[in-house]
Design a protein around this nucleic acid. Sequence first.
DNA 1: TGCAGAATTGAGCCGCGTCTAAAAATAACC
DNA 2: GGTTATTTTTAGACGCGGCTCAATTCTGCA
Lengths: 228, 228
Amino acid sequence: MTNEDKKELSPAMEDYLRTIYKFEEKGAMVTTSMISESLGVAPASVTKMMKRLASMDLVEHEPYRGVGLTANGEKAAAEMARHHRLIELFLTEVVGVPWDRVHDEAHRLEHALSEYLEDRLADILGDPKVDPHGQLIPCKDGRVAVRNLRMLWELEQGTRGVVAEIEDHDPALLRYAAERTLFPGTEICVVERDPYGGSVIVALGAERCAVGQDAARQIWIETNDTTS
Amino acid sequence: MTNEDKKELSPAMEDYLRTIYKFEEKGAMVTTSMISESLGVAPASVTKMMKRLASMDLVEHEPYRGVGLTANGEKAAAEMARHHRLIELFLTEVVGVPWDRVHDEAHRLEHALSEYLEDRLADILGDPKVDPHGQLIPCKDGRVAVRNLRMLWELEQGTRGVVAEIEDHDPALLRYAAERTLFPGTEICVVERDPYGGSVIVALGAERCAVGQDAARQIWIETNDTTS
DNA sequence: TGCAGAATTGAGCCGCGTCTAAAAATAACC
DNA sequence: GGTTATTTTTAGACGCGGCTCAATTCTGCA
Ligand SMILES: [Mn+2]
Ligand SMILES: [Mn+2]
Ligand SMILES: [Mn+2]
Ligand SMILES: [Mn+2]
């Protein structure tokens, strides 16, 4: 019945969808300017594309308020996220590309990955669940595990947790994290917070290190408290 | 001085250039209709693109006669051919993709491969000289070895040689060749030619097999005769 | 509550890469 | 060698995905 089942999405559309997806993952509401900035494109271009995507039932656009993915849109976006993250992991694990370089490469390659190759990569990597930066890899049907992540920056003093995810678009941040051995999986404890906004002091086993605000806002921690 | 050194080429332009390159490799003169057919695009689109490429000094276009790559164009095209063929080899060797599927995948991926990744692949593969179908991989500066190839179809009875190359765009042909163990490197001898155009009978060691005309026109043999 | 500044949208433009239909040049054939 | 068939080019159109600039809407603050 629904005769527009398999729209062929352009690379540009895929980029927009994955960008929105990335923000929604973090629970943020998604505005024109966020997309505009993240994609390096004029705000008016975003608006125009949102209309197009809305007409394809991939996005819901509330003028002047923001956008959100529809069920269809989320499906397509998860697909892209899966491509992107599988490629990132493949590049680090198999090709030997350092983790601060894989994002840009994956960004270019994701649109060119066939379903067949996607399956081959997943196979070789043993059906991985997370990419090199800790981002969840959606499975084929688009489903993802749910996690309760909190910004390192917002944790109260004394909180314990595990590094879950580090924003992957800025190579310098990734190197900054690596210098402090803040990798996904690293256990940490917040020792001290400068109330006037400088750094968080974090303990990693016996070591401790300072993490500046800008970085601490881009590092996500999984805590074991039951914030119901 | 020359301020237009590094034009950024669009994927479409890269496709046109690599297509012309592919024909020139085989010593053919390149016409609008050949490109049109090979790229699945209207002849008028080819003409228009040829003008654009000519204005960028990548192509020389003699109206109504044909086109050829300039030095710049050949550089750029060799770059694409290198990408394409490195990817094909990587996919067969590392990812385990069968040789009749790699062409289409490489065709999509080639435009998204950075110089950095290109180098990584070449490294992993040990600076290879030929792709899975026997096509030569240009080195970074665009240089390629010279070979003296002849169509299997045009060899006289009794000629000995080695399979050098099999056209890679048609998966069925590649499977056809594989069934007969006609891989790059296989030694063969032409036992018999049907003068009325059916098949060539080829000996491979003790075995022999028939190769139909359409296939024999797409299989290239390196012979050891000194055709000076 | 009204207003200034910021965010968003609308209108209109542009280049790319495609198409179709018609004109022009070349090639084939009798 | 002239006529016909084929190939190629020209002309004009279109959709996409960007942009700029102006109009609109929303927000924060006096
Ligand atoms: Mn996929
Ligand atoms: Mn990542
Ligand atoms: Mn290259
Ligand atoms: Mn090949």
